[in-house]
Each structure stands twice: as C-alpha cells, then as structure tokens.
Design a protein around this nucleic acid. Structure first.
Lengths: 132, 132
DNA sequence: CCGTATCCTCCTCGATACTG
DNA sequence: CAGTATCGAGGAGGATACGG
C-alpha cells in the first residue's frame, strides 16, 4: 500500500527531528552537563590536579564504575587530562584542561542562579502541591 | 557481630552523601535543566505565550506524555504559567514567568559556550577514539 | 592502586488507546 | 483540543568479583 499513514508521518518527523537534534551543539553540551556525576567531578578538579583515589574520597557516594566512566568521558571530550605515573603501585592524576577550565564559569553561573532562586522554586512547589 | 564491615561504611557514606546531595541547590537546578525536554520547552516559550498544540508542533519529536510531563514540572517549579480558557474546544496557553525568564540567560550562556567550543570537543573525541 | 567485567535491578520514556 | 491511563522495552547505574 502506498498510503501514507499517520504513523508514517510521525516516524518521518521523528527521524528528521533526531537528525536535527543530534546536530544541536547546546544539546550536546547539555548531555554532558546533565550527567549526574560530571559537575561533581568538574568541581572536584577545580582546585587543581587530584589523584583517582583522592577524587573517589572527595566525591562520596560515587561508585568506581561511575567515577571511571565519567572521567573517561571527560577525558575523551578534552575537558580533563589523565596522567599516569608508572610507579609501583601505579599513580594516576587528573586535572582540568584549559577547555575544562573555561567551562567552570558556566557551572558557577548555574550554581549562582540556583542559590539565588532555589527558595522561590521550593515555595512554588509547596504552593502547587497544596493547591493540587 | 558488632564488626564494622567495609560494606557498612560504604552504606553509611552513601546515606550521608545522599542527604548532602539532596540539599545541594545547583544539583537541584541541574536535575531540572538536564531533563531532555526542559530546555527545548523553555526556548520554545522564549518568544511569548504558546498554545499546547503549538508547542507540540514546534518541538518535533516530543510525545504527548513528555510534553505534558515537562510542562507540569515547570509549572510546579514556578517557571511556567498555565492559562486555561474554557471555550469549546478548550484552549490552554503556556508562558514563562519572570522566574522562568531569568533562567534564559543561563540557557543562552550554555548555548554560547557550546557553539564556541563544540568543534574543539568533537576534535578531541576524534583524536581520543583514534588513539584508543 | 587503579581500574575492567559481569550481572541485575530500577525507572525513564515511547507507543497506544481512551476521555472531558 | 488537551490531556490521562496503561504497558512494555531499553538503558543507566549499583553490587560484586577479578586483573595488571
């Protein structure tokens, strides 16, 4: 059947959207920033180089898997540099690259907005929940 | 046994972390912003009030469920106002509140950074993938 | 010390169908 | 037009055990 169904059109729209979406730069950045651990690792590295074990202690509650996964992702994106010192036992240091540093003002801005307005948001939620 | 195992200590740390974490304002904001559809809806509303069906067309690829869910969340947080006009058929408009508007510069900043640096990130990824 | 590999469990999200 | 209700697949992420 050559009939164009609603499902067909929806599917088509979805494809087009996904293609467009994948190209959206801010979307890509958001994908990185939205990761549960990324901002924590980033701020954890803000003060200078840190060892792996150091980070895992500073960022309480992170599993080895997630810490490694997050660091790998950030390294891949060129936001973090990984340095291995082949001693025994091995020592690994992580630090922000200039690109990574350039991202910190944004994180700070988000933090700033949040601290300034979180109370308003909380109040709005309370009101909303009470009304509903 | 009164012995404190490693698992015990990990569990304890997790509890403490979660409590601390739940209090972190930037974390809360990030939870909102990191949502796949939030920024899209927000930017969709940047130009002024929009009807529900209007939004669903502007934001191609969003399901009814997600659009409604996102709008509800934003309304609850006081970032978006919902106005129902009881005509037949019903008409519903959404618009940014002043609080919502105040968030837009941040979104713009993220967009700006992304557009300025996404190529560097992409290049870094290519290099990383090639090396590995 | 710094990971990798595996399993297993929520929980999000999309598809679909139905209502005021 | 603007939703709500329900179901099922898929992926994220934690626990655990093992390797260089």
């Amino acid at each position: 059947m050559a009939t164009t169904t609603a499902a067909d059109r929806r599917e088509e729209a979805k494809q087009a959207f996904d293609a467009y979406f994948a190209e959206c730069p801010s979307r890509k950045l958001l994908d990185r920033l939205s990761d549960k651990w990324v901002t924590l690792v980033l701020t954890g590295l803000a003060g200078g180089p840190r060892r792996y074990s150091d980070l895992s202690r500073r960022i309480a509650g992170v599993s080895q898997k997630m810490l490694t996964q997050t660091l790998r992702g950030l390294e891949r994106d060129g936001l973090v540099r990984r340095t291995v010192t082949p001693s025994v036992p091995v020592r690994v240091d992580y630090e922000l690259t200039p690109l990574g540093e350039s991202l910190m003002p944004l994180v700070a801005a988000i933090k700033g907005w949040a601290e300034a307005n979180i109370q308003t948001v909380e109040a709005a939620r309370k009101t909303y929940d009470a009304t509903a």
